[in-house]
């Protein structure tokens, strides 16, 4: 527990929140490497746990932290724009396989959202919860925008992204083994489409082809969902 006046002094500028985030991130990533990169416990989850633990123990309010950390979060805007660069670099690969991709992507990306929202609805989740889960397979900077449009909780979405990413990594390797799929392009695309940035990071560990197709799956899912999900949501009166 830090004393109230000290907390007030420290959180006067955003530097404390920014420093805390950088420290937790670097520590989480170092721990991740030390533990030999377990796929079920990504470094970002460890970093978030460290940060949440520190806030809880020191008695700093999450809102006070968030105010300062907004100085980092604002960079998500230009970072999303930056994704246009890998997208451009993959245009030749998109053209090569445009037909299977053009058929598979809309179906899979729609179902990724539909399965989760449908199951949650059947189990009695509230509208607010469903709006927070709908973008669960979309890369974070795009998913945040979508969730704000739908009126969901960004905090819950972030948790959903984490769970989805970890689950997608585990399930893709499992299902690919059962279905005897060894094509890196296919495994990578499935990882990026379902497991957004976390799946893409995993795909780059498998190989460069898997990684390229994962980034492709991730960008296309992001764009497709961003363009159509808010419209579909509005039409369905969600």
């Amino acid at each position: 527990m830090l004393s109230e006046p000290l907390i007030e002094r420290l959180t006067e500028t955003p530097l404390f929140a920014v420093g805390l985030t950088l420290a937790a991130y670097l520590l989480g990533m170092a721990l991740f490497r030390r533990l030999k990169q377990p796929p079920w416990l990504p470094g970002i989850l460890m970093a978030a746990l460290l940060l949440a633990g520190f806030l809880a123990i020191s008695g700093i309010h999450y809102t006070a932290y968030q105010d300062g950390a907004a100085w980092l979060s604002v960079l998500l805007g230009p970072a999303t724009v930056a994704l246009g660069m890998p997208l451009y670099q993959q245009l030749p690969r998109i053209r090569e396989l445009w037909r299977p991709l053009a058929i598979c992507l809309p179906i899979s990306a729609s179902l990724a959202a539909f399965y989760a929202v449908g199951i949650a609805k059947l189990m009695g989740a509230s509208d607010h919860v469903m709006a927070s889960l709908a973008a669960k397979s979309v890369t974070a900077p795009i998913a945040i925008g979508i969730t704000e449009q739908l009126g969901g909780s960004v905090a819950l979405l972030m948790g959903a992204l984490l769970i989805t990413g970890v689950a997608a990594i585990a399930f893709v390797s499992l299902v690919a083994r059962v279905m005897k799929i060894r094509d890196e392009r296919l495994i990578g695309f499935a990882l990026g489409l379902n497991g957004h940035a976390l799946g893409t990071v995993r795909a780059f560990e498998i190989g460069p082809t898997a990684g390229a197709f994962a980034s492709l799956g991730m960008s296309l899912t992001g764009i497709f969902t961003a363009l159509l999900l808010p419209l579909a949501w509005r039409l369905l009166g969600g």
Partner: peptide, 28 residues
């Protein structure tokens, strides 16, 4: 709501992974 959230995410992800792999395998 946690059960609904967790089952929706984990089971939903399993289903969509199976769909993607199956569909892409056939199409390719």
């Amino acid at each position: 709501q946690w059960t609904a959230i967790l089952v929706g995410l984990v089971l939903g992800t399993l289903l969509s992974v199976v769909t993607t792999l199956w569909l892409m395998q056939r199409l390719m």
